[in-house]
Amino acid sequence: MTTTLLDDKKKAARGGRTEPVLTVDDLTVVYEVERPVTAVKNASLTLHRGEILGLAGESGCGKTTLAYAVNRLHRPPARIASGSITFHDRDGSDIDVLALEDASLRAFRWDKLSMVFQGAMNALNPVTTVRAQLRDTLLAHRPRTPRAEVRRRSEEVLTRVGVDPRRLGSYAHELSGGMRQRVMIAMAMLLEPQIMIMDEPTTALDVVVQRDILREIVRLRDELDFAVVFITHDLPLLLEISDRIAVMLEGEIVELDTSERLYREARHPYTRKLLGSFPSLSGERGGFIRSGFDDFAATVDGTDAATTEEDRA
């Protein structure tokens, strides 16, 4: 019980605070292919300071596109067709993310808003050490950082994500998958961004390692007070870690609510369907039919459960 997050006091504090850090208004992203595809349709959401916002949806629903657009990382043929993205800096000034130019955009990324990519643990450079990569990132954004400061900061972020600072001299292949993912998170928080976007950061990891990393993220959020956009298809996971959850379906945010309410009283049928897709570990079996010598077998055979709506294609 080293960390006591989410105890009542803090929860109350966060609940009472509604200072926004990022406002996405009516954002539409279109892929200019032969028949243009609207990947994100009129998405609007507000991210509050220190909040974990879950973004749930299945493959191709546009959740990654949305995250990329917020970061201006989307590449042609994707384009932002309408809408605005505003970043509210800690000092009170507002930044129009869509109007940022080359240099200021680069400064904005990582400094104000950083991203942990899907499969990011394979994005570490295999031929240089962790130390060199942390140093490069830091120097790229804060060119005149003294050497001692670079070392101190690198050690600090690694310690924060629960990696022994002695690992600074290691190469990527010497680290386990969970470690690499932690190093990536360390790198993302190196410049103390106010927002971290995490795109399926734990999908490739084992459940136990995943749990460790989630705990780390929640703890860091409580210590450093950055906002997190957590993208995943794993709704139960989001229900546990996030404050609010946005559910996306075919480019649209169909439901956005607190985790608690989303779980108890989901309004959109798709949300309910997603919730129903995950059998509960300790609860009832839901839509599942146990095989074998089960008395269920006789009763449910009529309901041809295999015909789901997946045959959309």
Partner: peptide, 21 residues
């Protein structure tokens, strides 16, 4: 394993606060 698996049924996200892994 059972503790690490996400489970919304569990009360108040206790597992996130435990260092049991």
């Amino acid at each position: 394993l059972a503790m690490a698996a996400p489970d919304p049924e569990r009360v108040d996200r206790v597992t996130l606060t435990q260092d049991g892994t």
